[in-house]
Design a protein around this nucleic acid. Structure first.
Length: 896
RNA sequence: GGGAGCGUGCCGGAAUUGGUAGACGGACUCGACUCAAAAUCGAGCGCCUUCGGGCAUGUGGGUUCGAGUCCCACCGCUCCCACCA
């Protein structure tokens, strides 16, 4: 059932609703009038500002529905805030560095910069068709030197603060893309997020940012982010992964039982269980392994380490990984009880978490237990449920509460107190200390790729690592570089580029040839918008403090961890450098759900079928084999042929319909199922509004000179020259003010665009029913209100109808007379007042009917009315109720 | 294994936060208009019914005058983290 053409759905008259024509016209007019330019507050003025921000896109060249949803949501928020009188910053830019440009450029033999610029131009044009109220004068592109100059400048700030450093590290090496990957770019199966290649381990000198120095702050400030979804805060907290515990020292002993001076430090969250330790395990790549391994065990240890290094990645995938290990021959002394226990290495201990060593307490750790079972190591229980303590068994589950046994001087202590007591004893006696561990690692920012921001340092044989002086920035990325198909870092092969003189001593030196992780570029772009053309600084403190923190950030859940965490980190570092004056960059965060397309799959062949090839959607069949197809909604993707092209939707129905549909079909944070039939329905709604206004025009209604505004209506009604409102007029007026109230509430706090649109529909339904019977004064009020409430959602249609109704004269400047420059309507409480209201009568909690009662009736009279009603007579059978509950304005519940 | 969230008509989704469940829309059915179709307009649309009413928000309990909403247990789904000591 192909959708009909928009033109067919309109009536003859003064004109028909033709979005293709009017949308382009208004977009041009708005642009020429500079309507979307950000109003800068006058000096000294306490400005009521609002910063609405969408996550900026990677310029792939194609706008997809996910983008559309994101930007439409932000645009509605921005437009509502403007109507409410705020000065709004609503910018857009491009996250323009990164591998896809480089890879695409390699395939096409063009310059990544040119390719990216073309994509930006084409996407900017696609965005323009959506009618977004974006201030394009503040556009940024991270790959342009007037932007990345400041990315480099900020990197130098991190260096100066001691937060950027180089270290030799085991890194993830992608053998296909020939680059180092961050841990987060490697999936659970040890494959590259981009190429899908199995990642190898390599030792390289890399640049890191010390995000761990801010781990505590990044975690502790999460509860303050009340405008963020709980889900995102939890994900960040998990990612940071703070655990408090103790480091405990186990001394290595020789055959005679005396200390060798070598010490193993383990990390544990359960120091209270130390008396149950029956072995200590090191990670296979722990630095002490080779030194401590005895001659007898060296063969076995070597073989085991070899096995682990070769198989570790595959083992990670295994469901129930068997724990394997081997004793290395050495013994250690348990510092708590002096017991000698063996030292093992095992694959379940990770070198890069904690100290790379753990104490094995099989009775109180399920992993240790599994390991001990496998290798027949002793299991000694040192904590038992307290006999008299019923709290140990709470809600049907064992809690950790319990009492220590076999623990010498600590016997009888509760588990929780014992954690403190033992850590304290260790600290006092020199065999350990309380400590905190994080799952969060320092941020590896080096990339051995071309299309990224060059790291602005120079390596000099005599001066070491020298930052490029700020006045020499930017370190320009050379253009027109021949990119080998695959082959390490292109910049490293460009001797003419990296050969420079040392800024310190003037001797020949070498530029850093690594570029930065693109997350660096996107960690501060929202700051740049506040002062996008500053050529002396990334942003002036005055400008950034005026606009930020961002009032509302909108984007996909896929950035819940990395982008948002890095941005928070940047903000805190720049705060500490005195460059800005706030703690968190994003006050409120909305993570929009994805857009899903109808997907057809042949369950036998597993092949996806394009919807266009499905003849009958009610009985979808494979056009070739005739097989019945599975039908479901799934995230739009090329390989599943379930994508819907925004350009085609706009061409067919117009941007206003697309916008309305996206907002109406699902709450913003939920996934949205794209359904052509529903889009059609949305288009019909806009046509109904069009016809409603057409009829009003024919009737001679006019909104000129404030006609229909609340002031005008109230003045007229209070003047005494107007007659009382009759039934239809009261209905109409109530509908108008109910809509204002409901929509205002839906757009306040958490955004409920779907119900806001449904309220618009209710208002338009009420107008269709009552407008003709209402006098011009009240009809004008309804029309004015409907159009202004509609304006953020369907900006083109609203502006067109506003003009047709004389809301603005043809020759008036848009700057002042556009519908988008009007005031958000106010609720007139008197319009909501009713003489009578329905009162529900319940008998024993069950609804048995309802009465119309005076709206101002008090509790006692409501009770009387209920008791006197036929409903009561019928159900109570003459008996007096034993109890009566009266909820004024709602119900009376009679309990026999 | 740990954490977060969600289960409501044929479908997308509402429900003033404990007070008439199913707003609004889609699909569908009937009617008007039409030679006809589309569009438009009107009506119907949870299930059962002996037409009194009864049953319904994943299942089973509980609290309450009253539960989609709160509590407990279970079932199912989605997402995030995961040998993190």
């Amino acid at each position: 059932m192909p959708p009909v053409s928009p033109a067919s759905g309109t009536t003859a008259g003064h004109g028909r609703y033709s979005p293709g024509d009017l949308e382009g016209r208004w977009q041009k007019a708005w642009q020429e009038a500079g309507l979307d330019r950000t109003p800068e507050p006058d000096a000294g003025e306490a400005a009521d500002t609002f910063y609405a921000l969408s996550m900026f896109p990677y310029p792939s060249g194609n706008l997809h529905m996910g983008h559309v949803r994101n930007y439409v949501i932000t645009d509605v928020i921005a437009r509502v805030q403007r109507l409410r009188g705020r000065r709004v910053l609503h910018p857009m830019g491009w996250d323009a560095f990164g591998l896809p440009a480089e890879n695409a450029a390699i395939e096409r033999g063009v310059d990544p910069g040119d390719w990216t610029d073309q994509n930006i131009a084409s996407m900017r044009q696609q965005l323009a068709q959506l009618g977004l109220s974006i201030d394009w004068e503040r556009e940024v592109a991270t790959c342009h030197s007037d932007y990345y100059r400041w990315t480099q400048w900020l990197f130098l700030q991190f260096m100066e603060a001691g937060l950027a450093y180089r270290k030799e590290a085991t890194v993830n090496w992608d053998p296909i893309d020939q680059t180092v990957l961050a841990n987060e770019q490697v999936d659970g199966e040890g494959r590259s997020w981009r190429s899908g290649a199995l990642v190898e381990k390599r030792q390289l000198r890399q640049w890191f940012l010390k995000i761990t120095a801010y781990a505590d702050q990044l975690l502790d400030d999460l509860p303050k982010l009340e405008g963020w979804p709980e889900r995102v805060r939890t994900m960040q907290a998990n990612w940071i992964g703070r655990s408090t515990g103790a480091e405990l020292i186990f001394e290595v002993v020789n055959d005679a039982g005396t200390g060798t001076g070598e010490r193993i430090t383990v990390f544990t969250t359960r120091p209270d269980t130390i008396h149950g330790a029956s072995y200590v395990v090191l990670a296979p790549d722990h630095p002490l392994v080779s030194r401590l391994t005895t001659a007898e065990q060296s063969m076995a240890v070597e073989a085991f380490c070899d096995l682990v290094s070769r198989q570790s990645e595959q083992d990670r995938v295994a469901e129930d990984r068997p724990k394997r290990g081997v004793p290395i021959g050495a013994m250690v002394r348990n510092p708590a009880n002096g017991e000698l226990i063996p030292l093992w290495i095992a694959d379940y201990v990770l070198a890069d978490y904690g100290t790379g060593a753990v104490m094995g307490v099989p009775a109180h750790d399920h992993r240790d237990f599994a390991f001990a079972r496998q290798y027949e190591l002793p299991v000694r229980q040192v904590i038992v449920p307290a006999a008299s303590d019923e709290h140990a068994f709470e809600g049907g589950a064992w809690t950790e509460a319990g009492v220590l046994i076999h623990s010498g001087r600590f016997d009888g202590l509760g588990s929780t107190e014992a954690r403190e007591a033992i850590a304290a004893a260790a600290e006092a006696e020199g065999w350990g200390r309380k400590t905190v561990q994080f799952r969060l690692r320092d941020w590896l920012i080096s990339r051995q790729r071309y299309w990224g921001c060059p790291i602005p340092v120079i390596h000099c044989d005599s001066c070491g690592v020298v930052p490029v002086p700020a006045e020499q920035l930017p370190v320009e990325l050379p253009r027109n570089v021949a990119l080998a198909a695959k082959g390490g870092s292109p910049l490293a092969q460009l001797e003419s580029w990296w050969q420079v003189d040392c800024p310190c001593c003037g001797q020949p030196a070498k530029r850093e040839t690594d570029t930065m992780d693109t997350f660096m570029c996107s960690s501060w772009y929202y700051l740049r918008y506040s002062d996008a053309h500053n050529s002396r600084l990334p942003f002036a403190r005055e400008a950034v403090d005026r606009w930020l923190p961002v009032n509302q950030y909108v984007g996909g859940i896929e950035h819940a961890i990395l982008h948002l965490l890095y941005s928070r980190f940047f903000t805190k570092v720049l705060r500490d450098r005195g460059l800005l004056g706030f703690n968190e960059p994003f006050q409120k965060l909305l993570t929009q759900g994805m857009v899903q397309g109808i997907t057809y799959k042949n369950p036998i062949s597993g092949k996806y079928i394009a919807p266009a090839d499905v003849a009958d959607p009610s009985d979808p069949r494979d056009p070739i084999s005739g097989e019945q197809l599975e039908t479901f909604f799934e995230k739009m993707s090329k390989s599943k042929y379930n994508g819907v092209d925004p350009a085609q939707v706009i061409e067919r129905y117009g941007a206003d319909t697309a916008r309305m549909f996206i907002l109406f079909k699902a709450p913003p944070e939920k996934d949205l199922e794209w359904d052509d039939a529903d889009v059609e329905g949305q288009f019909r709604f806009l046509q109904r509004i069009w016809r409603l206004v057409e009829a009003a025009c024919e009737r001679g209604l006019n909104l000129a000179a404030g006609a229909g505004s609340l002031e005008a209506v109230q003045a007229a009604l209070n003047s005494g020259t107007e007659a009382e409102l009759h039934g239809a007029e009261r209905e109409l007026r109530r509908a108008v003010h109910t809509a204002i109230e409901a929509i205002s509430e839906d757009l306040d706090g958490d955004y409920q665009f779907n119900t806001a649109v449904s309220e618009l529909m209710k208002l338009s339904n009420a107008m269709a029913a009552h407008l003709d019977e209402s006098r011009p004064l009240l009809a004008s009020e309804a029309l004015r209100t409907l159009l202004i409430l509609l304006a953020p959602f369907a900006p083109h249609l609203a502006e067109e109808l506003w003009t047709r109704l004389g809301g603005r004269a043809e020759n008036e400047a848009l700057q002042s007379s556009s519908i988008h420059r009007q005031q958000w309507p106010m609720v007139d409480g008197t319009a909501l007042v009713r003489d009578t209201v329905p009162l529900v009568i319940q008998i024993k909690g069950k609804v048995r009917g309802s009465l119309e009662v005076p709206a101002d009736a008090d509790k006692a009279s409501l009770e009387q009315l209920a008791l006197a009603s036929e409903i009561a007579a019928k159900w109570l059978e003459g008996k007096a109720p034993s109890r009566v509950i009266v909820v004024p304005g709602k119900l009376v519940n009679l309990v026999p």
